[in-house]
């Protein structure tokens, strides 16, 4: 077999001109790919060997590399759109184009923020919600991760877990609120369970997807070294599926905010979801807008945190991704 592939490599005209037809037939593909120098794109290897002049219509590929955009420009563009929105809001309110009962002015929202910070409620509320959301995402995300890996790795796992999870996925978790209240009461347990359920489902779906997309060759190679069971899962499968898992974490965290609003409407005395309820109850539009801003900032914080984790946990990724 190897002899055949080597021959093909040395017959560049054929391979280069019709890469599609040659790359297709079955088992030969992997072997071709593993040959040093042949590369995933036959053309790359060819041009290096024979020189660009030998073949018409081919060129040396552009080096993608890890070019970085100028940080200042990047940051400027990044904050540009939110900044424009802020300016439009500020201008609209101060010129009287936006009536205060439709959207509170930035100044009154700032006052509300100052008030909330001065009474210590802001920190208290954020802490209470962070605790609930953190625990919920930890428990729910953990369960989703376990089930996703199980369903992704083993056929039996998939048969056992996937149908139920797909059913769960179709159930809006807000529909479970009355049921959960009768099971868990209206205390902390209810709130954490609700958030856990809301977080488990996206975590499962993305982990499953990520694990299914793990390179078979890598898994086979690891098996060849004798990795089995949890060592295979922790050492190879989960790191390979990490991009999907971190995406799942992003979504789970955002969904947990929805869960927080639903959970803290019932029987809470603190929390940012409770703040929404309070603002509605007391007809304070400034606080309603403040809540939206808090959520927006939390979205940024979550994103930044996950980006940091991505950079730390997947240092190789910068050299693999297209951009």
């Amino acid at each position: 077999m190897i002899a055949v592939t080597l021959e093909r490599v040395h017959a560049p005209d054929e391979t280069a001109n019709r890469p599609g037809t040659e790359a297709l037939p079955g088992s030969e593909v992997s072997e071709t790919a593993t040959q040093p120098g042949s590369g995933a794109f036959p053309g790359a290897g060819v041009s290096e060997r024979t020189g660009p002049g030998a073949l018409s219509g081919l060129e040396v590929p552009r080096y993608l590399g890890s070019r970085r955009r100028p940080p200042l420009l990047s940051a400027g563009v990044r904050i540009g759109v939110p900044l424009l929105l802020l300016i439009a809001w500020w201008y609209g309110s101060s010129s009287g184009r936006i009536p205060p009962d439709v959207l509170a002015a930035p100044s009154s929202v700032l006052d509300a923020l100052r008030e909330l910070a001065a009474t210590g409620q802001l920190a208290e509320y954020l802490l209470a919600s962070a605790q609930r959301a953190g625990l919920g995402v930890l428990v729910g995300g953990g369960i989703g991760l376990l089930l996703g890996v199980a369903a992704g790795i083993s056929a039996l796992g998939e048969e056992l877990v996937d149908p139920t999870m797909q059913m769960m996925r179709a159930v809006p978790f807000l529909a479970l609120v009355p049921l959960f209240i009768s099971w868990f009461g209206v205390g902390e347990t209810f709130k954490i369970v609700l958030i856990a359920v809301s977080a488990a489902i996206p975590m499962y779906a993305y982990t499953y997807l990520g694990v299914r997309n793990v390179d078979r060759k890598v898994v086979e190679a690891a098996r060849g070294f004798g990795l089995r069971g949890h060592r295979l899962a922790l050492g190879v499968v989960i790191p390979s599926a990490l991009p999907s898992i971190l995406m799942a974490l992003r979504i789970s965290l955002s969904v947990s905010l929805t869960g927080l609003i639903a959970a803290e409407q019932i029987g809470a005395t603190e929390g940012i979801g409770y703040l929404v309820t309070l603002a509605q109850q007391y007809f304070r539009i400034d606080y309603m807008v403040l809540c939206i801003l808090i959520y927006a900032v939390l979205g940024l914080v979550f994103d930044a945190a996950i980006r940091l984790v991505e950079r730390l946990a997947m240092p190789w990724r910068g050299h693999v991704v297209a951009r």
């Binding site: 009355p178 209240i181 029987g267 309820t277």
Partner: peptide, 14 residues
């Protein structure tokens, strides 16, 4: 002392 509810109706589940 428990959680806060906007009205009698809101407290029904509790």
């Amino acid at each position: 002392w428990g959680g806060s509810y906007a009205s009698f109706t809101a407290a029904i589940d509790a």
